[in-house]
């Protein structure tokens, strides 16, 4: 095994070095990038994406993809926004429970269709992507939830907290990341998720309930997208049926894939996903600093996805070749 192969294997290290190089280059080009404001922007931008990425990572590890998360986010945001209009005093904790539940149900619907009818999850969630988005319009009647509809205590969730005034969503997303890490790395169920993605046939033979594991991943993915809906309402102060969450699934998927989660299932880590999202966040903030128009963001993300996919395939190819199991 060459050094190159080892490097390929430890993907977290690879992405970390890319981040370091990128930051250094950006800082040299424009020192403004290293100010506290820039980094505050980075860490305000990522919690929303990061939370969704945790769920998406679980789904991708067990060999599926959920592209309906943007619509789930929008639906839960609209639901909670409409509730705020009725009950402005709704507590943050209850809001969290409600959005989580809404997302959970939608995720479970995805999981149910995928496991019951054995259709590729991308096609299924392409359907529910529209279905849920349509529901957003039906429920809201096309009306936007405005800044003054959202209570102050919810808005402040994304601005400050009791802890050194660190924004609440940042703390909360950090907690979710840590829990996801513990579940995926150290719990029995987490290891069963990896096993299912690594070899579903073997997982079934070993007595793992593959359907249950898959449903769990889709359920959690939906739940976290639902929670992200609350984050959205809190951070942006509005919810628009036609704008909120549109296309966000591709940013999330990009982050997960460049974080080293293999689309063929069975591998990926919370640390890698975090670094992947961090890189996207840094790029996002660095673009204006580097005088690159914001319109280029999507193209850059798209390019990153394609490169990451190609790299992933290259790694699989090299690993097979090393173990001598390559059959053309």
């Amino acid at each position: 095994m060459t050094l190159f192969d080892k490097f390929l294997r430890i993907r977290e290290l690879g992405i970390f070095s890319i981040i370091v190089v990128f930051v250094i280059v950006a800082a040299i080009i424009d020192p403004r990038f290293m100010t506290l404001d820039s980094w505050r922007a980075v860490f305000l931008a990522i919690p929303l994406i990061l939370v969704m990425a945790m769920g998406q990572m679980m789904v991708i590890i067990c060999r599926h993809v959920d592209i309906s998360i943007g619509s789930i986010l929008a639906f839960s945001a609209i639901v909670i926004g409409l509730l705020y209009i009725q009950f402005p005093g709704l507590s943050l904790w209850l809001s969290l429970v409600i959005t989580a539940f809404v997302g959970l149900v939608m995720g479970l619907i995805n999981g149910f269709i995928v496991t019951r009818f054995n259709v590729h999850s991308i096609i299924v969630t392409l359907g529910t992507l529209s279905l849920y988005r349509g529901l957003v319009f039906i429920v809201s009647g096309g009306r936007q939830i405005d800044r003054n509809d959202i209570p102050e205590h919810v808005v402040s969730f994304s601005q400050t907290s009791f802890l050194f005034s660190i924004p609440g969503i940042l703390i909360f997303s950090a907690i979710i990341v840590v829990i996801t890490h513990l579940v995926m790395r150290h719990s029995v169920l987490g290891r069963e998720i990896y096993a299912t993605g690594s070899n579903p046939v073997a997982a079934h033979l070993k007595g793992i309930n593959v359907t249950k594991v898959t449903l769990f991943c889709f359920g959690i993915c939906g739940m976290l997208a639902g929670v992200a809906g609350l984050f959205y309402a809190s951070r942006f102060g509005y919810v628009n049926p036609g704008v909120t969450g549109v296309g966000i699934e591709f940013i999330v998927i990009a982050g997960v894939i460049i974080g080293g989660t293999s689309i063929t299932g069975g591998s990926g880590s919370v640390l890698g996903t975090f670094l992947g999202i961090l890189l996207l966040g840094i790029i996002n903030v660095a673009l204006p600093v580097l005088n690159i128009p914001g319109e280029f963001q999507k193209a850059i993300y798209g390019l990153i996805i394609v490169i990451a996919l190609a790299l992933d395939q290259l790694i699989i190819y090299r690993m097979k070749k090393l173990s001598g199991g390559l059959n053309a």
């Binding site: 591709f250 280029f296 999507k298």
Partner: peptide, 21 residues
């Protein structure tokens, strides 16, 4: 040998992004 269903999700973002740029 990238599965087309995954790859074209990537190029979907890429092409739209280039159009936007």
């Amino acid at each position: 040998q990238i599965p087309s269903i995954i790859l074209t999700i990537g190029t979907l973002t890429l092409y739209r992004g280039i159009a936007q740029s």
